[in-house]
Structure formats: structure tokens, C-alpha cells
């Protein structure tokens, strides 16, 4: 079945992962800007990172017929340094006309501190001023519930923000209801230990339906599985759910959210029309990389 992985950090993955994604039917990935595993020394580190996301990574994905989209921001962890964060935010507008940029993200909270909240609000303001979609990172583990509620409070405090243009990511059993009741899109991250399993994600689809719900792998440099979305598809099939239901979650919902981006081009969708109408991935080799240096 064809699908989109709406949250995966391909800068941390090897080129062979693109080939595996293509073999499993992945048509497109969207890559939010995130923490590199260490704090950058200066804003220039982000400048190079943003160039990586808008220039190099789309070419690498394209070698395997995968469309690469991205989101730009300073992540919540490095947002603790407010002066650095403000420098990074000032760099973002120059990239907002690039064709693969979907919006501002993944902004959010990490440890739910005051500094993180300040930088979150300033990036929400940036998105509002430039009419950008917003992708939100919610905190890990014991901080998730408090942080998700704080994020929703802050979103509601800005009258310029329309809920249908915001996606709240990494929701689980205790936060999904708050995101959906607020009118936001939400996504479940399929992680081996610390977030949702494919089974629990399927449970939440059965409990809350398919409206405004996505699933993603959030594959990155830590323990994670770039093929987690196909595993979710398998779990849904195992339970006897229809192709229509599964396609809604793994393909149509990401497209519906992305189409709201002011740079969205229908040309790519039109070029895919045959694949979008055919559920099964043909048993052919994916396009192989032409050059590797």
C-alpha cells in the first residue's frame, strides 16, 4: 500500500533507508527540523542544517522516487537558550519560499520551562506572520501530558492561529483527546519503547476514528524504525480493517494537511495519480541512485 511518512528525520538515516522506504510504498516523507543529539555552537550551525533540508535531502530522496518535504524551526531542547533561538528564528524567513518547505516545525516544549514557552510563542508568531502551517513536538514521557496541555493553552491564546492548520505530534492515550477536541490535527509516533506501538496506534484509531489523525515513524539517530508505518499498515490489515480506512490514515490525511501549505503544488499529486488510485505497490525495483559520492 502506498503511504506518506509525515515525520521522519532522514538527515540521520543512511541512503539505503530511502531504498527500503521506496520498496515498501513510501511516496513522500516530511522532515521537521530537530535536535541533532548535541547543542549547536552557533546559529550558523542551523543555517547549514536548513540548507541541508531544502537542498541536499530532496535530491537524495528523489533518487528513489520519494518526494521530500520539510519544516523549519529551532527545536524545543535548544530553545532553552533564548538568545540563540532568536538568532535562529531570524534566519528562517529566507528559506520560506523554498518549494519543499511545508511550514514551521517541530516547535514545542521539552521540559516545559519558561524559556521554552517564550521561544514557542515567538515561533507561533512567526508562523502567523508568514501564514505558515505549524507542526508541534510534544514532550517525552512524564512531561508529555503537562506540556501538551500548556501548548494547547498557548495556541488558544493567539487568535490568529486556526486549529485546522496545526498538527500536534507524538500524541498517546492521555493526550489525543485534547488535541482532537481542540480541532487540531494529530499524529501518533510509532517508537519501539517510549511512544506508541503499531498495536496501540491501531487501538486509538478504533477509539477515535480516522478524522485528522496521522501516524509516523519519527525515525532519527536514536532507537527508531523507519519502516514503522508499514508495520502499522500490517497491524490494521491483521485486524481486518478496510483498505479505505488504512489509506485515509497513511496517505489521504497527510495529503489533506499538507495541501494547506501556501507553497503546495498539485503537480506532484497529479503526477502520482496512477499510484494514488492503485493500492498495491508494484513488484518492481525502485529507481536506484544514479550517483553516489
Amino acid at each position: 500500500m502506498y503511504y506518506i511518512d509525515p515525520h521522519i528525520h532522514m538527515v540521520s538515516r543512511i541512503t539505503d533507508d530511502y531504498e527500503r522506504l521506496a520498496r515498501c510504498g513510501c511516496l513522500a516523507v516530511s522532515e521537521p527540523a530537530f535536535w541533532a543529539g548535541f547543542d549547536r555552537a552557533s546559529a550558523y550551525g542551523f543555517l547549514d542544517y536548513f540548507r541541508h533540508l531544502v537542498e541536499f535531502e530532496p535530491k537524495r530522496a528523489g533518487q528513489f522516487g520519494i518526494r521530500h518535504f520539510c519544516w523549519l524551526c529551532i527545536n524545543a531542547k535548544e530553545a532553552e537558550n533564548v538568545s540563540l533561538a532568536r538568532e535562529v528564528i531570524s534566519l528562517i524567513p529566507q528559506f520560506l519560499d523554498r518549494p519543499n518547505v511545508l511550514g514551521i516545525g517541530e516547535i514545542g516544549l521539552n521540559k516545559n520551562t519558561r524559556n521554552e514557552a517564550i521561544v514557542f510563542l515567538e515561533q507561533v508568531d512567526l508562523a502567523a506572520r508568514y501564514d505558515e502551517l505549524i507542526l508541534i513536538h510534544t514532550p517525552h514521557l512524564e512531561d508529555k501530558y503537562m506540556g501538551t496541555r500548556m501548548i494547547i493553552d498557548m495556541l488558544r491564546s493567539d487568535s490568529r492561529i486556526r486549529a485546522e492548520r496545526v498538527l500536534i505530534d507524538h500524541v498517546e492515550e492521555h493526550t489525543i483527546r485534547h488535541a482532537l477536541e481542540g480541532g487540531y490535527w494529530c499524529a501518533m509516533t510509532l517508537y519501539p519503547t517510549t511512544k506508541c506501538t503499531p498495536q496501540r496506534a491501531a487501538d486509538l484509531i478504533e477509539m477515535y476514528g480516522t478524522e485528522r489523525v496521522l501516524v509516523n515513524s519519527a525515525g532519527d539517530w536514536g532507537p527508531s524504525d523507519p519502516l514503522a508505518v508499514p508495520k502499522f499498515i500490517q497491524e490494521m490489515k491483521r485486524r481486518g480493517h478496510s483498505e479505505e480506512v488504512i489509506r485515509r490514515v497513511v496517505l489521504e490525511n497527510p495529503l489533506a494537511f499538507f495541501r494547506q501549505s501556501r507553497r503546495w503544488s498539485r503537480e506532484w499529486e497529479t503526477s502520482l495519480n496512477g499510484q494514488l488510485l492503485t493500492s498495491e505497490v508494484p513488484r518492481t525495483e525502485p529507481a536506484l541512485a544514479q550517483t553516489r559520492s
Binding site: 516545559n112 519558561r114 514557552a117 517564550i118 510563542l121 515567538e122 508568531d125 514521557l141 512524564e142 512531561d143 508529555k144 501530558y145 503537562m146 496541555r149 500548556m150 493553552d153 498557548m154 491564546s157 498517546e172 492515550e173 492521555h174 496501540r200 487501538d203
Partner: peptide, 22 residues
Amino acid sequence: AERIQLIFSRPYDPNWERPSLP
């Protein structure tokens, strides 16, 4: 599952002190 998630969660205070946008 939801109730166990909340057992492992820090509590949310609806009156938390919100910063204002400069």
C-alpha cells in the same frame, strides 16, 4: 492505558504562568 499514562505523568496546572509575546 490512558489512566496508566496519567499515573506516569507530571500533573498539569491550568493556572501556569504564561509568558507574554514581546
